Simulated scan of single mutants.
Amino acid sequence: MTQGRRRALYEDVSERNSAMDRRRAREFDAFVAGASSRLLHAATLLTAEPPTANPLAQRLLTGALARTYARWDRLRGEDPYNRTRQELALRFARSAWRYHRVRGGVLDRLTPQERLILVLRLYEGVEEEQTAAIIGLPADRVRAICSRAVSAMRSARRAPGRPLLRTAS
């Protein structure tokens, strides 16, 4: 094979790869445009930060989105939203020790584990068994923690002298 022929093949392959990279970037941009606000809200609930000042939630979501982008070509029909939500939950669970301090968010009265389960079950609508599989707990334990978290939020809402909780929008 001549030098000129090799260079032409290399340029052809390079052109094809850059076209695939551009398509991949467009698809991912469209996904992020549609899903980022809901995922950011979920991350903000997890970190118990106020919606207007949520740098930890933004960092958590950025990491989850980066991981999804890295695996974008290997999703093969899998829902990217579910993949990103799962990655977000796993990243939060691994670093939950950072989120014990009260920050003023809607769910700041709950422990990190309670927040994770409550957000997955009630805000995201993930089934009990799937939530248990994501965080590695038995389904009965997930049910008990979710019930305890809901009770804690209801009792906090009725406590005298405390402001009413604003609903997440």
Rank of each mutant, 00 (worst) to 15 (best):
M1T: 11
M1I: 15
R6C: 11
L9P: 00
Y10D: 07
V13N: 11
S14F: 09
N17V: 09
S18D: 02
S18H: 05
S18I: 03
A19R: 06
A25N: 06
R26I: 14
V32H: 13
A33R: 13
A35V: 13
S37I: 03
L39E: 00
L40H: 10
H41R: 10
A43D: 02
L46G: 00
T47Q: 01
P50G: 12
T52L: 11
A53E: 10
R59H: 12
L61D: 00
L61N: 00
T62C: 11
T62S: 13
G63D: 07
A66I: 06
L75S: 03
L75A: 01
E78R: 01
P80F: 08
Y81L: 14
T84S: 13
R85D: 08
Q86E: 12
E87Q: 06
E87H: 04
A93H: 04
S95Q: 13
R103P: 02
G105Q: 00
T111C: 03
Q113C: 06
Q113P: 03
L116M: 03
L116F: 00
R121G: 07
G125D: 04
E127T: 11
T131S: 03
I134H: 03
I134P: 00
A144N: 07
I145M: 01
C146T: 12
S147E: 05
R148L: 10
A149M: 02
M153E: 06
R154T: 13
R157W: 15
A159G: 12
P160C: 05
G161K: 10
R162N: 14
L165M: 13
T167K: 10
T167R: 12
A168G: 05
